[in-house]
Design a binder for these strands. Structure first.
Length: 284
DNA sequence: TCTAACCTGATC
DNA sequence: GATCAGGTTAGA
C-alpha cells in the first residue's frame, strides 16, 4: 500500500510526535512480525532521536545507534495510542512509549515487518541490501543510467527497488502518464530527450503527493490522518473515465504483474526498434 | 523475467 | 464463489 509519499508522511508525523521521548520495550503479539537482528540485546528504555524514511521503510532511530525499522508493505499502519485504548484487530506489535502510550503496528494481511537493528546488523538487513537510490535525489543522468539500461518495461523498471527505491504502483502510473510514456515501453528504448520530462514528472508527482500527505484509497492512514493526493490522481483508479487532457477513456491493463492505468491517447505505444546488430547487451 | 506465494478483506 | 488490492521475493 504505502509508497514513498505515504511513508514520508508517516515518518514526519512520528518524528514530530516521538522525538525526545523514550521506548520502554517492544511486545510482539504475532510470531515473526517483530524480530531483533541477531545479537541485538536492547537495554530499555532507550531515547528516541527521531524518525525518517528510506525508500519505503520507516526508521525510528534510538540511542546507541539502534533503529526500529518498519516495512508497511500493503496494509501496515503505525498508530500512537494510549495503552488503555482497546487493541484493534490485527495489532501485531506494541512499542511501549513513555507516558502510558504505545506505537502500535497494525497489519491485516500480515505482510509487513518490524525489525530492531544495531549499527552492526543494519547494513546486512534484508530490508536494505540492494536498495537503489532515492528518486528525489537523482539527476537526469542518474535516472537514465539506472532505468534506461533495463530491457524490461519502463513500469517494471520504475517499480524495481534495486534500480531506484520508493516508487510503487500508484505513482508509477501517475508518473508515466505525466511523462506521456506507455507503461509497456521497454525502458532501454526511452529516447535521450525523454529523461528530462520523466525526471520532472518523478519530482513533481512525488513532491506534490508528499505535500498532500500521500494517497488514501483504502486503509492507509498516517498517525495524523488520511492523505488527499488520491483527489489528484489522473489515471490511477480512473478506469473508463475520460482522460483529463484528451478525453479518451483511461484503460487498465496488466504490466509487470500489476494493474496498470494509462491513457491510450496521451501515452501511445511505441514498438521496440529492431536491433541493428547482434551486439552484446547487459541488463542491471 | 514471469508466476506463485505470502495473508485478509472488500467488492464483483 | 471468484477476483482484486498501495509490496516483495523465491522459484521456475
Amino acid at each position: 500500500m504505502p509508497e514513498l509519499p505515504e511513508v514520508e508522511t508517516v515518518a514526519r508525523a512520528l518524528d514530530a510526535r516521538l522525538k525526545g521521548r523514550r521506548v520502554e520495550g517492544v511486545e510482539c503479539r504475532f510470531p515473526g512480525v517483530y524480530e531483533a537482528g541477531s545479537g541485538v540485546r536492547p537495554r530499555w528504555p532507550l531515547g528516541i532521536l527521531g524518525a525518517r524514511r528510506r525508500a519505503k521503510l520507516v526508521l525510528l532511530e534510538l540511542d546507541g545507534g539502534l533503529v526500529l525499522v518498519t516495512h508497511l508493505r500493503m496494509t501496515g499502519a503505525l498508530k500512537i495510542e494510549s495503552v488503555e485504548a482497546v487493541l484493534e484487530p490485527h495489532t501485531h506489535v506494541c512499542i511501549r512509549l513513555d507516558g502510558d502510550e504505545e506505537l502500535r503496528f497494525v497489519d491485516p494481511r500480515r505482510f509487513g515487518r518490524v525489525r530492531l537493528e544495531s549499527p552492526a546488523t543494519l547494513a546486512q538487513s534484508s530490508f536494505f541490501t540492494s536498495l537503489g537510490p532515492e528518486p528525489l535525489e537523482l539527476d537526469e543522468e542518474g535516472l537514465a543510467s539506472r532505468i534506461g539500461v533495463s530491457r524490461a518495461s519502463i513500469k517494471a523498471a520504475l517499480l524495481d527497488q534495486r534500480r531506484i527505491a520508493g516508487i510503487g504502483n500508484i505513482y508509477a502510473d501517475e508518473i508515466l502518464y505525466a511523462a506521456g510514456i506507455h507503461p509497456r515501453q521497454p525502458a532501454d528504448t526511452v529516447r535521450p530527450g525523454e529523461w528530462k520530462s520523466l525526471l520532472e514528472s518523478v519530482r513533481r508527482i512525488l513532491n506534490s503527493a508528499i505535500e498532500r500527505g500521500g494517497s488514501t484509497i483504502r486503509d492507509y492512514r498516517s498517525p495524523e490522518g488520511a492523505g488527499s493526493y488520491q483527489d489528484q490522481h489522473q489515471v490511477f483508479g480512473r478506469t473508463d473515465e475520460p482522460c483529463p487532457a484528451c478525453g479518451k477513456r483511461i484503460r487498465k491493463i496488466r504490466v509487470a504483474g500489476r494493474g496498470t492505468h494509462f491513457c491510450p491517447g496521451c501515452q501511445p505505444q511505441r514498438r521496440r526498434r529492431r536491433r541493428s546488430a547482434p551486439s552484446s547487451r547487459s541488463s542491471r
